[in-house]
Design a protein around this nucleic acid. Sequence first.
DNA 1: TCGCATCATCATAGCGCTACGATCAGGGAC
DNA 2: GTCCCTGATCGTAGCGCTATGATGATGCGA
Lengths: 345, 345
Amino acid sequence: MDDAGPIRRRARRKMQAVTMSEVAAAADVSASTVSLYFRRPKSVSPPAREAIARAVAELGYVPNLVAGGLAAASSRVVSLIVPSVRNAFFAETVSALEAALVPHGLQVLLGHTEYDLAREEALVRAALAWAPAAIVLTGLEHNQDTRTLLEKARVPIVEMWERGAAPIDMGVGFDHGAVGALAARRLIARGRRRLVFCGARMQEDRRAAQRAEGFAAAAREEGIDAAILNHPGPADPQAGALLLDRALREVPGIDAMAASNDFVAMGALFEAQRRALAVPDTLALVGFGDLPFAAACVPPLTTIRPAGDLVGREVARLVIARIRGETVLDRAVDTGFVLVERVSG
Amino acid sequence: MDDAGPIRRRARRKMQAVTMSEVAAAADVSASTVSLYFRRPKSVSPPAREAIARAVAELGYVPNLVAGGLAAASSRVVSLIVPSVRNAFFAETVSALEAALVPHGLQVLLGHTEYDLAREEALVRAALAWAPAAIVLTGLEHNQDTRTLLEKARVPIVEMWERGAAPIDMGVGFDHGAVGALAARRLIARGRRRLVFCGARMQEDRRAAQRAEGFAAAAREEGIDAAILNHPGPADPQAGALLLDRALREVPGIDAMAASNDFVAMGALFEAQRRALAVPDTLALVGFGDLPFAAACVPPLTTIRPAGDLVGREVARLVIARIRGETVLDRAVDTGFVLVERVSG
DNA sequence: TCGCATCATCATAGCGCTACGATCAGGGAC
DNA sequence: GTCCCTGATCGTAGCGCTATGATGATGCGA
């Protein structure tokens, strides 16, 4: 019952220079028409369209997507969660994905898990707070809380860079076990019998571990007992050098090595060169990634190329289709990989 | 005068599962208190705090930052614009910056210019639409429209990875000309006289061009006329191989080469190996970046290390200080660089 | 006892936009 | 002329939150 009467309140600070209604006033139309002009220009008559365009240009109007997102109950943001952009694979995917989304007016909100599932959960929580148009994350393994959060969210979700178990919503990736198997079969077909898989950070990088397992399993099928060596640090050339050194000591008669990625392979290549160990004659070497330097190495590196940019583009395709309300039939896209036969192995 | 009367409207679709007022109801406090709980927990009494925490956990409440951003006239987003995350330097910076911002509840909105100033302008426009807490972009060179947009925006702005002209607002980076000069002086001090700078994409990558110019200028001071070679494609090892090939043909008697980055240097190293050209005896080689493989090369690569992660951390420091309303005295931070003396040059 | 801080809590008015439904003009079909 | 359809435009009611200032409750010195 406290009808307080005409209390004067201090004017609230204005958030932005030019608002939509100011544009509307300048163009002599209503705010609704200006809004429509941005969302469906074709529904606005040419004269009004022109007047609004002129007003927008003159006033330097920039639409406020925060307000738009709130009103529309969904923002034009795609939340992207990867282990690390310092990893060349994810950098490529992030780049391709962003490039494919921008033409559709979508922007990328980026987060890094550093291979930590708890951090992933925090990032998913933060992502959800933005009412994103979609959430893209890496891999099929998540915390139970993360899963629950994602399942409850009525948002398109894409899990990428892995294939196997059913995705929560949609998936884009390939079978890492098959990559490892391909490397093993390649080396065996070339007459190698003492195989080692050298990986880095496999205690965290589950996909690298899958490649290692696929490698060992395929070797076993051929009656060969392949060794798996892990370096706990980052997957860089130094790890490759260290791993080759260990392999040489721990696996007598080693004649072939597969690396969990091309940087590791390159490190092994350099280490072999330092030891005057002939590649591929004495030691055959297969990498993973076909990173830009693989072809330039001496000798050129045989490697398995996943389509990192294709992953990004396919993710974008699914996301855009879902935002448009189209039904997505292929909810689990296989982007595959190819063996790039060069000289090293 | 159309007092329309009690028109029934259809209920608007609810945007999210649990709202703040539902949490408030469950915790038996007002929505204001819940809001305060999230913004300044210490201003809420312990019993209320506990009740709210319980309600949040039970209902699985996730705050809506879109609404918060609108009401508070600024969002917890930092817009980050780089040429490309496929570039290892920027990947490192993006990674370090994101890691430093997340603990402060800030998220990164990422955009790639691909070295295109028009694209940069579009990205700045899109960034502004999010009322970001800050805008971080790469380099000091921008379109006139971009500059105007940024100057008008009342938002902290950091220009990174370059130093020279005054930044629009704040700057974090180093002098690329000095990097080139350091490379030249190093090679000359080691007795080299026929110098070449090999760069890639320098028609677009202005900072690489600055390194080239600094290199040539320092050589000139020593009475040496250094050549500059540019490869228009991406700065990868293939470019390095091509450039060394060209240098060998176009610069008779060449005895030293500086590369615009370590990938290019690595390509030159491999090309030298292919030609049985001794490094450093016949050809000295200096790179830029100290990327993870530089130390692992054969021979280990002498290179100049910029502090890519430091750039990210310093940017974060400035951004956070400004968001907190602190005065930033050092508006142009020099992150410097160091010569990493190894074997190649 | 009063007066005046201090602290915790609350009610309210937007932030700038979009979705919805209403309105209005113009154009056939009958 | 009437009816209905279509296309363009508009007014309004929120979206979920935060900033602001008001309201009580409590403590403390005088």
